[in-house]
Design a protein around this nucleic acid. Structure first.
Lengths: 349, 349
DNA sequence: CTGAAAGCGCTAACAC
DNA sequence: GTGTTAGCGCTTTCAG
């Protein structure tokens, strides 16, 4: 009943088939220059022994691993996990395996250990999927450690010398606020995300710009900073109700905070959308089932992940072929769309 | 301005420091038998060249990679991503890297390609984090491919010869229903998950058992099958209202479906919790902000992932040391707790 | 304390 | 068509 605990090597296959290791290698790599008869004999042995060539050994020879290193944070939140999902899909399709590291927080500065691990594991490329928060991108310019490993950054302020893939937060937020304005709301408050987040600043800037473009008020007492959580949204909306009594609509920087607005409105018997329009951001799965269903911005986070991998694979290929890392850095911005639901529809269409 | 595109090898470090490669190796591995002076010289060169030893080469020699293969599915849902988050944490703490594969669906049967990839990449162990759905565990008994690679399975019907880590779905659901009964509800309907899911069957069995234990009705027209989504929950609750008019409480198999119940109740002007008690399952972050806040079961999915890795690491170690794969399989069941919020509290306490 | 030789599993380059 | 040799980057074993 004892079965071999150790995997068979190419040598064992070779000797069992009565050929050299080279021939086995040729068969495994589907080279044409093997006699049909020999090939079959080798294949039989391979099948019988359950031989599986070691990708580790291959990696050592070819100096490539078909492995992409991915850095993420906050996986338990919907945004990052949707991005990762897009990454896994695209990686699978392109024949790359994924090595994933999750940072304990979003604003980790000391990324050396992670870079070193990626380098020592010899990943072919890196997807830096942590959103830009505070100074958590400072390392990029200070770290030569990347040593020319192809890297794509997600969700950050574009920089000319980096390849960046991001959703257009400004445009998305602009859509949200313009929609509210079109619905006739004139006093539109904002609950922002934490302003050390690049995305939060983008969304907020769009709110302000849209209002100003329509000569509507956008003052300091018309917005409050949240931290993405529903809890923070609950506090924020209380503050807004107090300091902005004329407010007839709210643009929340994400759906979780928008949910708190809906809850607060209900408790105060404020009718949504008649007396208060509400728009969120992200389109989490539950938002269609809030009371009332929430108008929101569809941000396609998975697509961001997919594009990042597609682009990275191109860079990796160029990098290997041309021997030069002059595959021009590029910024890819994806456009979100608005999903109009009941929470903002004051005008019957 | 040209900088070396290729990483330095141990040989380059050795010659630059005027020593042999063994000495560099000794320094890297913090061996004591190196003269302090030599060590320093080597360290200087290492630092200057930015030398990082190749884990690939090491893996080839040591026949271990410090890499765990993880298989998941449905990453965009909160459950799986919370589990992965627990896995990344525990892996980091234990010094293991993670290679992640996401199945395109939950009920994938053909797992050979994934197993083969894991084998060829020489992972030290596997965490099978896909929940048991339909026949998606049949391969386990038919596949010798695992070849003795230590493996831990999550969220499935325990089997004596497998190491399984799971949350106690039955117990959690039982808590939910017993709580409703204690609150005086007597006609408790159920919206189940898809019944090809092991977890859904467990939760449903607990609902039935709890009711029967209290001589309360649990008939076929008192429950409806959903598919975890809020959309399915919305349909299910309509059906239940129709076919179970006396119903005064609902136990939904997850929070998303419970949300639909709350929404439907509101539309029909049914007061929650006075006229309808509602309990969900999973404690998604938003559930505390539903209207009213949702009573639910805290299932600690991340802890499941953590335990899985901890256990796997133990198995890997035993496997290497004792040269035998007789580290007894074990089943680890984690107990969930109930979070009582407003949606089910009819009795003032 | 340090170095030389051998080899992990595989493949490229060259023989025959 | 097929085998032999050398070597990817590192560590182990054994000399010295």
């Amino acid at each position: 009943m004892s079965f071999q605990t150790r995997r068979p090597t190419i040598r064992q296959v070779a000797s069992a088939a009565g050929v050299s290791t080279q021939t086995v290698s040729r068969v495994m790599n589907k080279r044409p220059d093997v006699a049909a008869e020999t090939r079959q004999r080798v294949l039989d042995v391979i099948d019988q022994l359950g031989y599986q060539p070691s990708e580790v050994a291959r990696s050592l020879i070819h100096q490539r691993t078909y492995m992409i290193g991915v850095v993420t944070a906050g996986l338990k939140y919907t945004g990052p996990s949707r991005t990762i999902s897009g990454i896994t899909q695209a990686a699978e399709e392109n024949g790359y395996a994924l090595m994933i590291k999750e940072l304990p927080r979003f604003d980790v500065h000391n990324v050396e250990p992670i870079l070193k691990e990626f380098i020592s594991r010899h990943v072919d490329g890196i997807v830096w999927a942590v959103p830009e928060v505070g100074e958590n991108r400072d390392w990029v310019d200070q770290t030569p450690s990347l040593r020319g490993i192809p890297t794509v950054f997600l969700t950050m302020q574009p920089q000319a010398h980096l390849t960046v893939v991001s959703m257009d937060n400004y445009q998305g937020a602009r859509l949200a606020v313009e929609h509210l304005i079109a619905q006739g709301y004139e006093h539109i408050g904002h609950i922002s995300g934490p302003l050390d987040w690049w995305e939060a600043r983008q969304r907020m800037a769009a709110w302000k710009d849209a209002l100003q473009a329509h000569d509507l008020p956008a003052q300091d007492c018309h917005w409050v900073e949240g931290n993405w959580s529903s809890t923070s949204g609950a506090q924020a909306i209380q503050t807004l109700f107090n300091q902005y009594p004329q407010m007839d609509a709210v643009f929340a920087a994400n759906d979780q905070m928008a949910l708190s607005v809906l809850q607060a409105a209900q408790l105060r018997k404020i009718a949504v959308p008649q007396d208060l329009g509400v728009v969120g951001f992200d389109n989490i799965a539950e938002s269609a089932f809030f009371s009332p269903p929430l108008t929101t911005i569809q941000s396609n986070q998975d697509t961001v992940g997919q594009w990042a991998v597609e682009e990275l694979v191109k860079i990796i290929l160029a990098h290997r072929q041309e021997q030069q890392d002059t595959f021009a850095p590029k910024t890819i911005i994806l456009s979100p769309t608005i999903l109009i639901r009941q929470s903002s529809q004051r005008i019957q269409s």
